[in-house]
Amino acid sequence: MAAEKIPPGKPTSMESTMIDKGAKILQSLKPIKQMNQNICTFALYNHDMSRQIETHHYVSRVNQDFLQCAVYDSDDSTGRLIGVEYIVSDRIFENLSPDEQKLWHSHAYEVKSGLLVTPRVPEMLAKPELEILAKTYGKFWCTWQTDRGDKLPIGPPSLMMSPQGVNLGMVKPVLVTKRDDKYNIYSDALKVARVEIAEPEWINPQADYWRQHGKGFAVDVEESEMKLRAPFP
């Protein structure tokens, strides 16, 4: 199974292994060391709700209103880096433009439903963080579609969305059961235990755009003339 996750290429040489070990000792790797927790949840492709994946978000807390996450497809040593998610507080989100807000999803349902967990961290210790996350929004770009068997990161990134209820893209039970069995948890029990976690007073309708409009967003690549200065955004 582990071999199936390895991209095409020659085995790592002894020389490269020694270089890696030496660099680990000599270099600071400061950005990586800021990752302090693993959040496990599920995500759906914005353009195809039938495609659902388990995700592991390794979180760096920039400040109280902004988190940045390296997203892997598992927490095993063979886990593949499949994307990046940015998480902002509701206060930051309300200051984004309406067009930008369409690319973000809310986290309240993930938290309250028990889909979002902090593996191996007791629920009592995780609760303060869950209360914060319930009032945040995320923008998640998937750069490697390992769920369809891609051996390498192919094509443009895909925007991902959050599950938002039984009739609106709820995660397939088999995925939840597999995850729960691995960490010896029970999502339905977590849902009951999290009843008292306060939900946001208001979730901006521009987030979870697909819920209101039935439309997703897909990225395509177009050839264009090269310019000295590219427009932004």
Rank of each mutant, 00 (worst) to 15 (best):
T12K: 03
S13E: 04
M14A: 09
M14I: 04
S16D: 03
M18Q: 06
K21C: 07
G22E: 01
A23S: 06
A23Q: 04
K24P: 09
I25L: 14
I25C: 10
L26H: 11
L26W: 04
Q27R: 09
Q27I: 01
L29R: 11
K33P: 07
K33I: 00
K33L: 05
Q37S: 15
Q37N: 12
N38G: 10
N38L: 06
I39A: 14
T41A: 15
F42A: 12
F42E: 11
L44G: 05
Y45M: 12
N46Y: 00
D48N: 15
D48V: 07
D48L: 09
R51C: 14
I53G: 10
I53L: 05
E54I: 03
E54W: 08
T55V: 02
H57Q: 10
R61T: 06
R61H: 05
V62P: 10
N63T: 10
D65I: 00
F66K: 02
L67A: 03
Q68N: 09
C69V: 07
C69H: 12
A70T: 04
A70K: 07
V71S: 13
V71L: 10
D73Y: 12
D75C: 10
D76L: 10
S77L: 11
S77A: 07
T78F: 09
R80T: 05
L81W: 12
L81G: 13
I82R: 09
G83F: 03
I87H: 12
V88Y: 05
V88D: 05
V88G: 11
S89V: 01
D90G: 12
D90Q: 02
I92R: 12
I92E: 11
F93P: 07
F93R: 12
F93I: 04
E94Y: 08
E94F: 09
N95F: 03
P98A: 15
D99P: 09
E100W: 05
W104M: 14
S106F: 00
S106Q: 00
H107S: 11
Y109G: 05
Y109R: 11
E110I: 00
V111A: 15
K112A: 14
K112D: 02
K112M: 05
S113V: 01
G114K: 14
L116E: 00
L116D: 05
V117F: 06
P119F: 07
P119E: 11
R120Q: 11
V121Y: 07
P122R: 07
E123K: 13
L125P: 08
A126R: 14
K127Y: 06
P128W: 02
P128K: 05
L130W: 01
E131H: 09
I132M: 13
L133G: 03
K135F: 04
K135S: 08
Y137T: 00
Y137E: 01
G138P: 03
K139R: 08
F140K: 03
W141H: 15
